[in-house]
Design a protein around this nucleic acid. Structure first.
Lengths: 223, 223
DNA sequence: TCCCCCGTAATGCTGCCGCAATCTTCGCGG
DNA sequence: CCGCGAAGATTGCGGCAGCATTACGGGGGA
């Protein structure tokens, strides 16, 4: 797991990085919003820890900036300002949780877990993988801004895989994503969709590949 | 004692309610997740019986929803899906037990008792050992962020061992984790899996070792 | 009517995994 | 310290389940 920590107090940042690493969490650290924004473009984080008072501005302004790019990475706001009104302010801007300083690392871990196991929010605007951008809400796909039209079932497979890129998606999960429980399939329909989808993605130069994990499921990776 | 039963097959639900009432258990019944969530807000249940395939979605999604509200009511998942991989998926989402259909009411009662006397489970999101991170929910394994693809049976062995790292895992426990009850093995198939898994972990530089405790079972340690 | 999505099934291939043979390690008793 | 038996480790083999691909045709929408 990889976190982005945006915090200007060096001592706190170092202590936190150390503590988190003991939980197997890799932490990228920066002190300025401008850098943070750049980092989120280059990397994919599982969550972001955000301080409010920062050298180059109010931390909260970062949230809409990020959300506008379509990222729904969970954000936990860390701050000394812990009045109820201010919590509301943060949460309304799209933060997922709010943690007043000082706090115990254990509490942070608990909130992290809670936030990460939360079902993906509906505010998720688009998924970006390889050279393609997927908009699950409008069910549209573009490769380098050029629209790519996909049949419905193939699109559903693609979305299900893209939402969990680099992670194995069970065969049964994919079936659940493509078929509702009334529909039945008694053949290799899913395999056929995968195969046709692969061909289309290749032709379109999407920059992603779909791997099979024998006996388990499928996995989408960037090339 | 009061249970919440979330099940869309009317016949099964009625039969179950009847059988449970003979044990002095009151059962609330609903067929939809949305209603179930509302009911848990209004009532306090001793345990929840949850079907997976429901008209308004996959039952498992209910678990994080509920856990997020801070409730630790034991959940037993009822389902026709009883493959080892799917058991892992269910339990790691925070279910307390898993019961494949069809089942005997007596077995359900036994599991209910077991679950009620058990201290609330703390499910880990991911397991970090050596240089590797195991995400049982997404069934993915990475070594220093590089995905490691493992065959199904070896993956199941690894997850079972990693969950109890530094502790001996009984041979029989491992077998139960890898094979369902219909399958039988009459050879050293498990040993073979361990051997091949060791080789793969070594090649990948996972930073862990699997030790044998003669006559008892196996044990996973960091190097 | 034409098009194309999509379920089905046939075909070929890959590699998982059960099995068993063989070798190694461990623990115990003398 | 040695020897023996049992448990474990390793590995090749072969069966076959699972996957990839593709052709075919029904059926629904434009």
């Amino acid at each position: 797991m990889r976190l982005l920590l945006i915090e200007d107090e060096k001592e706190l940042a170092d202590a936190l990085s150390g503590a988190l690493s003991k939980h197997g969490i890799v932490t990228d650290h920066t002190t300025h919003l401008a850098d943070a924004f750049e980092l989120t473009r280059q990397n994919s984080y599982d969550a972001i820890l955000l301080d409010r008072r920062l050298p180059d501005g109010e931390g909260l302004t970062f949230i809409p900036m990020l959300r506008r790019t379509g990222t729904d990475t969970p954000i936990i706001v860390l701050t000394a300002r812990n009045e109820p009104l201010e919590r509301v302010e943060g949460l309304d801007l799209g933060a997922d949780d709010y943690l007043g300083k000082p706090f115990l690392v254990d509490e942070l871990m608990a909130r992290l877990r809670a936030v990460l196991r939360r079902p993906p929010s509906l505010t998720e605007l688009q998924i970006s993988v390889g050279r393609m951008v997927i908009d699950p809400l409008h069910l549209s796909v573009t490769v380098e801004s050029i629209p790519l039209e996909l049949p419905r079932r193939e699109l559903l497979v693609l979305v299900a895989l893209a939402k969990r890129k680099d992670k194995t998606v069970l065969r049964s999960t994919l079936e659940a994503a493509v078929y509702n429980y009334e529909e039945e399939i008694q053949s290799n329909a899913l395999d056929a969709h995968i195969s046709r989808l692969r061909k289309r993605l290749l032709d379109a130069g999407a920059g992603i590949t779909i791997h099979n994990i024998r006996g388990v499921g499928y996995l989408l990776k960037e090339e």
